[in-house]
Each structure stands twice: as structure tokens, then as C-alpha cells.
């Protein structure tokens, strides 16, 4: 079966520093894949390359959709990549803080809707219907991720865990094929983490989403992922099922240092 995301030998240089070195990675349809590694290993840089915030120095990134259509993501602007079906969340939460929770999700619907300036000014039937549809859809997503109680709250006033969930909701609104989560459980307590675990599994099972996540919480990673990629110093040092990775001496060394 063809993977949904295929990354071939991607490199990213910052000046003289090589942040990503010949990295290969693939995510199959309906899979939950984790990307782990020590701080500074280049995980977020990898996300930024895939989502178009950085242009990779070399290498190829492909997205293969369900209908078997393939498209290269190299050199595309972030918004184009989102349109192709790749959505992400941010490690340091980047919500639209002066907008309400619902509006945050409605912004996510932008690339799946078409109303123009003229439509906005004259409010023709199509625009009104589309707007109603956006509101309905956004509220549905809020219910799905379990934060619909905050619907009219300002995003900045949300509790921390709910902000992380709102990031996911907003990404879902772009109707992605593949969801990239950058440390979704950071700063969450065990209870919240458990709920997040359930949410991610639910998204995969009910929505047919594929998920690639960066995470430091090993318990979550091990219980959640089908496969794990391990990075260190910009390279992939291991990959495999949770059980394989757990036993891999290279991984243990990378995490605990040379002395162990």
C-alpha cells in the first residue's frame, strides 16, 4: 500500500549548520506515527519543512491522496500545502487570541470555502448558506474535540489543555488527510493526556485520519503509535514498532548519553 506522506532524503541547512540530514520518513494511510528524539534533534524543523514554513535545502516530499493522486510539496507555500490536505498544530500554541473559540475554527474552514469580497458585501444566497455551513461544521468540530462549552469564549482566556485542543480543532477544520501534531501533550496532566490519547485514536478510527506526532511523553507515544521514528542530530537513528524501538541500543544511547 502506498504511503500517504513520503519524505525522501530531506536536508535542511541553516548557514553552515545542518539541521536535517538525509532524512527519510513515511506515513501510511490510517497510521499513527510518532517522531521522537532528544531536544534539538530537528523534529520541529522537520515539521516546518514538510508544512512549507522552511524550504528544504534538498530532498523530496510527496503527498499521495486516497484517489492515488500524488503531489510534490517541495517549494509550495504553507497555505498551498494545507490546501493539499496537510494540517498542523504548533508546539508553542499559536491561536488567534483575540478571536473567539468558534471563530478560530471558522478560520480553519477558510481554504474549504469560497466566498469572495463581493459575496461578503452583497450576501447572496450562496454566501449565506456557506456561512451557515461553516458555523455548523465548526461547532461540530468543537464538539468532536470536546471543547464546545467554550464556543464564544476568547481563545486567550481558555485553560491550557483546552487551548491545545483548540489547536487540533482548528487544524481539523482544514479537512486534512494527514494531521501533524507538535507536542500535543506538552504541559498536560496525566488525566488530560489520557483524554488526548483517546481523542487521537478516535480521530484516526472515526475520521480516517493519518497522524504524525512529535511527543516527549513516552507513555503516550508507546501506547498510541503504530510506528516510531527516532531522530538525533538531524538524522534518523532508528525506526520500528514501539517494542522494537524500546529495545534498540542506539535509541537508548541517544537518550541516556554515552556513559550508559
Amino acid at each position: 500500500m502506498k504511503p500517504i506522506l513520503e519524505v525522501n532524503k530531506i536536508c535542511m541547512d541553516f548557514g553552515g549548520l545542518r539541521a536535517l540530514d538525509q532524512l527519510d520518513l513515511e506515513v501510511k494511510s490510517g497510521e499513527i506515527v510518532a517522531l521522537i528524539g532528544p531536544n534539538g534533534a530537528g523534529k520541529t524543523t522537520f515539521f516546518n519543512c514538510v508544512t512549507g514554513i522552511y524550504a528544504p535545502t534538498s530532498g523530496n516530499i510527496f503527498l499521495h491522496d486516497m484517489k492515488g493522486k500524488s503531489s510534490s510539496l517541495n517549494g509550495l507555500k504553507p497555505n498551498k500545502i494545507t490546501e493539499k490536505g496537510l494540517a498542523r498544530t504548533f508546539q508553542n500554541i499559536r491561536l488567534f487570541s483575540e478571536m473567539t473559540v468558534l471563530e478560530n475554527v471558522m478560520v480553519g474552514c477558510h481554504c474549504r470555502s469560497t466566498a469572495s469580497i463581493l459575496g461578503a458585501l452583497f450576501r447572496n444566497k450562496k454566501t449565506v448558506q456557506e456561512e451557515e455551513e461553516i458555523v455548523r461544521k465548526s461547532y461540530g468540530i468543537l464538539q468532536k474535540v470536546g471543547i464546545s462549552e467554550y464556543v464564544n469564549e476568547m481563545a486567550k482566556n481558555l485553560p491550557y489543555g483546552a487551548q491545545r485542543r483548540l489547536e487540533i480543532a482548528r487544524a481539523l477544520a482544514t479537512e486534512p488527510l494527514l494531521l501533524l501534531l507538535d507536542e500535543p501533550a506538552a504541559g498536560m496532566n496525566p488525566q488530560e493526556t489520557k483524554e488526548l490519547d483517546e481523542l487521537i485514536v478516535r480521530l484516526r478510527d472515526n475520521e480516517g485520519l493519518s497522524i504524525l506526532l512529535i511527543e516527549h511523553d513516552m507513555k503516550l507515544v508507546m501506547s498510541l503509535s503504530d510506528r516510531i521514528f527516532v531522530m538525533d542530530y538531524g538524522r534518523k537513528i532508528a525506526q520500528g514498532t514501539p517494542a522494537e524501538v524500546r529495545e534498540n541500543p542506539v535509541v537508548i544511547k541517544a537518550y541516556l548519553g554515552d556513559d550508559s
Binding site: T82, E83, A87, F90, E98, V107, H110, L121, T127
Partner: peptide, 27 residues
């Protein structure tokens, strides 16, 4: 009308956070 429309939301999103705004598929 503009500010409560799809375009208006995109403007405000842009003001709040350019990078997140682009990640939402906004040009």
C-alpha cells in the same frame, strides 16, 4: 459585512498570527 465575513476573519487571523494563519490555508 466585511469584518464578519470569511475575508474579514482571514484579516483578523493574519493580524493575530501570520504563521498560524498560513497554516490554516490562507494566502
Amino acid at each position: 459585512r466585511l469584518q464578519s465575513s470569511r475575508i474579514g476573519r482571514a484579516w483578523i487571523a493574519l493580524r493575530e498570527d501570520e504563521i498560524a494563519c498560513q497554516a490554516m490555508g490562507i494566502d
